[in-house]
Design a protein around this nucleic acid. Structure first.
Lengths: 195, 195
DNA sequence: TTTTTTGCATACCAAAAGGTATGGTCTTAT
DNA sequence: ATAAGACCATACCTTTTGGTATGCAAAAAA
């Protein structure tokens, strides 16, 4: 892997726990076999580094679980529930302290830097659009009840996920975390057609 | 008001947008008619200042809406819905960028400082207990359906609220914010006995 | 083969951050 | 009345932060 990408990945690791403001990029460098020279060669300043991490590391991971939904032919409610199950399975108790990178950055940086805010907004909107479109197509195909409001449900789903990640950062309780995901899954069942 | 409390209030204002790490207490001082001398007379260091803001400014405000629930005799579902309405009414569009102070701090400081994490956990648990107790009493009194799980609903309610505040920081969209609150209100209706 | 450019290391640097040391005034207890 | 302590301003001080300036080896272009 090239140096630039190694820097992004490594700094991202640190940003997950320190946040962007608490991030000390040069300190992170010394924990690799790289120095500040490399850092400031590839990135003009700290803010640009942050944007790059957001776009090149965080965004792809953030969108990944939802992309298959674009071509999914089955019931979108089932798909969303499978995402929740996936989160339960892949999130270990020791990872709860990290939270969701997108939500973390949104809370920390949105009021401080319009570049961050806008990028985060776009990312969240992308996911919201994917979900709401899938729900709409699900309605057309008879998988989702007509009274369901796709955009609102998508937004609710996202907010609940984000909130659950956030609460877990203080509580570090995997059982509560999982339970909230289950509740969200049951809530979605309301909008499923048939049994 | 005494200097100590004035400092707490004023620094809190800044912390709402900068976060704790981004907070520059001495800079804030210069915007009052107070200097660092006063600051470090009342607070040993920045961390202690943060704890004081959390305990003396944020906590009371955070608990306030839920305290009446301790002695409320009516349907707790209605009460929770009235809290949601209250949030809709009192949260102006321009305030969306601030988010929820407790959730903000939880995301930023929980992984970094156990003193913050523990205090935040206790605060969130307090509210969760108030809500779940009220729901339980509601079941006993026939206001809330038996299948409702008070603790889980309380936790879900909190996570959703936190998540909604968080999403709004990037989106700054009052309509979406309100809509999510409405959805949560409708969700609670599931657990109401009768019509 | 020279020359230029790329990729990084090393050394330096100004400002900011967080805090301390000192001293003065104003109140309170004696 | 006076000694003691509370309260706060001013001036300093150290470390950290976020960079810049320079140099140099390897790769690529001419």
């Amino acid at each position: 892997m090239d140096t630039r990408m190694r820097i992004l990945e490594r700094v991202y690791e640190d940003m997950r726990v320190k946040g962007f403001q608490g991030l000390r990029a040069d300190v992170v460098m010394t924990s690799m076999d790289v120095t500040k020279g490399a850092l400031y060669y590839h990135f003009k300043n700290k803010t640009v580094l942050g944007y790059a991490i957001l776009e090149e590391v965080i965004q792809p991971e953030y969108l990944k679980p939802y992309l298959p939904l674009l071509e999914y032919e089955g019931n979108p409610v089932s798909f969303l529930q499978s995402i929740l199950s996936g989160i339960k399975l892949t999130t270990e108790a020791k990872d709860l302290m990290f939270g969701d990178p997108v939500h973390n950055l949104a809370l920390e940086m949105s009021p401080l830097d319009e570049g961050f805010r806008k990028r985060l907004e776009i990312m969240q909107d992308s996911v919201k659009d994917i979900i709401s479109d899938a729900l709409y197509r699900g309605q057309v195909r008879g998988f989702v009840v007509d009274r369901a409001k796709p955009v609102q449900i998508a937004s609710f789903f996202q907010a609940m996920l984000a909130g659950n990640y956030g609460m877990a950062k203080a509580h570090l309780n995997k059982r509560v975390f999982d339970n909230n995901l289950d509740m969200l899954g049951e809530y979605l069942d309301e909008f499923r057609v048939g049994v």
